[in-house]
Design a protein around this nucleic acid. Structure first.
Lengths: 193, 193
DNA sequence: ACCTGAACACCGTTCAAGT
DNA sequence: ACCTGAACACCGTTCAAGT
């Protein structure tokens, strides 16, 4: 995790990881099967940082919101996670939080197909959002953002709306995320039992 | 694209690509700056397959739905795209469709911050959904899905809700996606001018 | 039970040299 | 303007051998 946080996913190498641990790279293969296993472990560790709301049997919407916000915060705290989200999330930490999400929705009266749609909708939204923000917000991408900005302005004839109201320009990621989550939850209300 | 479609992102190599084109790998660097450029070009090409709705000035919701569905279909047609979505999408095809999305929302009366939130919300949702589905649905992941299924059943004490109603089990991806999109659009109605 | 070194089969990319 | 070959600095992973 330290290596990933400091240098990003590209620079995580079995050799570099081993060096940081004071061994040879081949030693790692006694403890781990492949590099993918290392990435799966690191990714699941992120979700361990997400606090599971202590539900007082109260508002399901409040509980779900807290979980999803924590989920997002954890992903953004470790931006390298964005490039790894395209793999099955099956670690104990992910599953525990996924269980909470499903249980909360069930308790709120959701039944299939709305149960599945709500759970997936929330997960997909938070993953997509974290992916998008991590892509554009992070350090080395500062220049990419500026270049994108300039590119839109330069071709404002082709992309008038994007150049004018376009994203990336004065985007407040937090309120954008919150509003989108509100839409989703408002829309789900209809499906609530 | 042919190479990616047939063998996936992992197996796209400058050497293998060159072989397919009947040249040496180093020749490619005359036409392209880095491998990342190749991936960016391939990814943008996907979006070129998405038809931009011919808006008759009618229902914005209908137009947006058509675009997002096309977006999703294109991504799922090329599942290797899932692992590449964590990079800036700035090709002409993406931008043209993004411009349409924003313009449609503006015409519908959306203003900031709702305009940005709606556009991002829709994009993030479709990207997250395609990522999730491609992760679980695809060929070689058949066994991963079965293993995940078995794992949940085996630990049904820890994950009772997931084991019972859990995803991956009898999930109809299309209706799950459609329902989630409905929630989002319903929720956005409030923000409409 | 755990660690090591040598080795294999690859990578992306550069660069001088060719036509 | 475009292509080639040799070369550099890496990769993930295996496996016999050590302690």
């Amino acid at each position: 995790m330290a290596l990933l946080d400091q240098e990003g996913a590209d620079r995580l190498t079995m050799r570099r990881l081993a060096e940081r641990l004071g061994t040879g790279s081949t030693t790692l293969y006694w403890h781990v099967k492949t590099k993918d296993d290392v990435l799966d472990l690191a990714l699941d560790a992120i979700f361990g940082e997400v606090e599971i709301p202590r539900t007082d049997g109260g508002d399901w919407r409040e509980d779900v919101t807290a979980l999803i916000r924590g989920w997002r915060a954890a992903l953004l705290d470790h931006p390298w996670s964005a490039s790894l989200l395209g793999r099955p999330l099956m670690g104990p930490n992910v599953l525990a939080r996924s269980e909470f999400l499903h249980a909360t929705l069930v308790a709120a009266g959701f039944t299939d197909p709305h149960l599945t749609a709500a759970a997936y909708g929330l997960s997909n939204y938070v993953i997509g959002s974290a992916l998008m923000q991590a892509t554009w917000q992070n350090g080395d991408e500062e220049q990419a953002r500026r270049a994108a900005h300039d590119h839109l302005r330069a071709h404002r004839d082709r992309y008038p709306t994007l150049a004018a109201h376009g994203p990336l320009i004065g985007n407040d990621w937090d309120t954008t995320f919150t509003l989108g989550l509100t839409y989703l939850l408002d829309g789900m209300k209809t499906a609530e039992r």
